[in-house]
Design a protein around this nucleic acid. Structure first.
Lengths: 310, 310
DNA sequence: TCATGCTGATAGGAATAACCTATCCAGAAG
DNA sequence: CTTCTGGATAGGTTATTCCTATCAGCATGA
């Protein structure tokens, strides 16, 4: 039986240094004295035979070997986290804290709809929601900083396991004066030719989807950034152009008087909202249950308000 | 920064107990005294709050939680192994030992062809070959007992990453007297109807492929087991029936005088020989290089002897 | 120029964890 | 009723990990 020559704690220390790029702050973060941490990191480097950091007087540099090994160290700790999570779930399967990410074009609209149902279904489960763009969330999940995320299936989700929650059709938002085909009839993609289509900021997967669907239209790069859907809608209602909106955002965003919301003709553009998590996460079955709760909640909700669905 | 409450060594101990189903032998395997191991396992259980084993007087039972947690513990250690491997490769990228599995219908025929080239290309690399059936090899890889394996792509390889090495067309082996269509012309699948097709033992992926290709033929379950291709060929040459052979085995197995080897007409049945390894293995790039060496060696070899290829 | 503040490394001693040998206790087998 | 085989317990030793205090190199700013 081989001796690993390093401990989980040493891996934590190395990770902390890599993250903080500073031994003192890393030590603080780990609740140990700086000499202890220094000693452990040095011990680890000598037992591996490879230096991970270059100690310069003004800070820390990560060596090439360090880059590679730190990523693998993180994997070890993610697996270890998973192990303790699994153990805890044997004590109480539906207790503890879940950190769930959600993208900005879903979060503000979906969470109010589902939060009460989740609280009711899992009273001992503390849900923490973190809003960020898809790629940041996916990275956080694989680093073990998040347990799951609500994403659009159509975006690049990396290697996540997932379950569908809802289908979210897109609609057209135009200034209320603007005529597009026969009033009330579904809008076709052709009718968008020549229109100024306003886009969300870069990094939003919803922007990418709109770009793909509207590749025929005249896409407008704006002088300033539309950092959120409310901003975008504000611009549309003041006559700057038209835009697409996810159906889920309509109830909240269509309150504006200057705005006209129109359905698209088939094939209706849409996205699939999914809950995704790390492959082989110990939380997989709890997350599966939560996904189901979300799906059921939204389905029954849809029958009431016609908010989401195709 | 959280405290894991357990050490890598404790995980090793738990794994050893799970494998040996006996504390004393597990301790021996870990080179510690039985009380030390017992104490560490108990310590771990209490810090997790979940018992992993039931100590019965006549041995050890694994609890339900144990089953689940032991699998996850193994993943932690596989990640840790990977970490040390990665570190070692920074010391010398092409040194060390690689344990490579190979299936019985490939090993005896392919290894003699490639071993000299590998020794020449990677003189500081010690290659250990382990022969077993596909599912056992795949399991060993994911347990970290093997680094890679030579398999048929058409079999169920689980979640392995892989690179193709060669395409291996199948041929027909019949007793030399037997007539099938025009002599010398390629044999069609239809001409096999009514023939007694002998099959390899269960568990060989080659058997499954033959079953799939010949689903129209009259497949013979034999009274005794054909545990290897030489056995099978022996039976064919003594007139018990016909069989399919992988092309790679032809040079070695066609020496028998009573045997006639025939090509198939298009579409020629074949398998794809690949080198597969654990996803995100730290050895991925070394294994990639080895795969390339194998591919190149076999290609140049083929141009010489017409052994493999389509 | 010289104090000050920031890096990380070093020294010595205290606390903790891991280990060993010897022994114990309970059930199974002879 | 003894012996064997399972694992748990006791007490002392060794190894590891940690702490505080201090050092050394380099930058900044008075």
């Amino acid at each position: 039986m081989k001796n690993y020559g390093f401990t989980l704690r040493q891996l934590q220390y190395v990770l902390a240094v890599a993250e903080m790029m500073n031994f003192r702050r890393a030590a603080e973060r780990c609740n140990v004295s700086q000499p202890s941490l220094s000693a452990q990191v040095a011990e680890m480097e000598s037992s591996l035979g490879v230096p991970l950091f270059e100690r310069d007087r003004r800070g820390v540099l990560v060596t090439a070997a360090g880059q590679e090994l730190i990523a693998r160290a993180r994997r070890v700790l993610v697996a270890a986290d998973d192990f303790v999570d699994a153990a805890n779930r044997f004590i109480d399967p539906l207790a503890g804290t879940l950190r769930i990410g959600v993208i900005p074009t879903i979060g503000p609209y979906l969470l109010p709809l589902v939060a009460p149902a989740l609280r009711k279904a899992y009273p001992r489960l503390m849900l923490v929601w973190i809003e960020d763009k898809t790629d940041a969330l996916v990275r956080s999940i694989s680093h073990g900083d998040l347990d799951a995320a609500l994403l659009a299936l159509e975006a690049d989700m990396g290697d996540l396991e997932h379950q569908a929650i809802a289908v979210d059709p897109f609609v057209l938002a135009a200034p209320s004066g603007r005529k597009l085909g026969r009033a009330g009839a579904p809008v076709t993609m052709n009718q968008l030719r020549g229109e100024r289509i306003l886009l969300l900021d870069e990094g939003h997967c919803f922007r990418d989807q709109v770009l793909e669907y509207c590749s025929g239209g005249k896409l407008e790069e704006l002088g300033f950034r539309a950092t959120s859907l409310p901003t975008l809608v504000q611009m549309v209602s003041s006559g700057a152009g038209i835009t697409l909106l996810p159906g889920i955002a309509v109830p909240a965003e269509s309150q504006r008087s200057q705005l006209s919301i129109r359905r698209f003709s088939r094939p209706v553009p849409f996205r699939t909202i999914v809950l995704g998590w790390r492959r082989r996460s110990s939380l997989a079955d709890v997350l599966g249950k939560i996904a189901k709760t979300l799906r059921v909640t939204l389905e029954s909700d849809r029958r009431g308000t016609k908010g989401i669905g195709v």
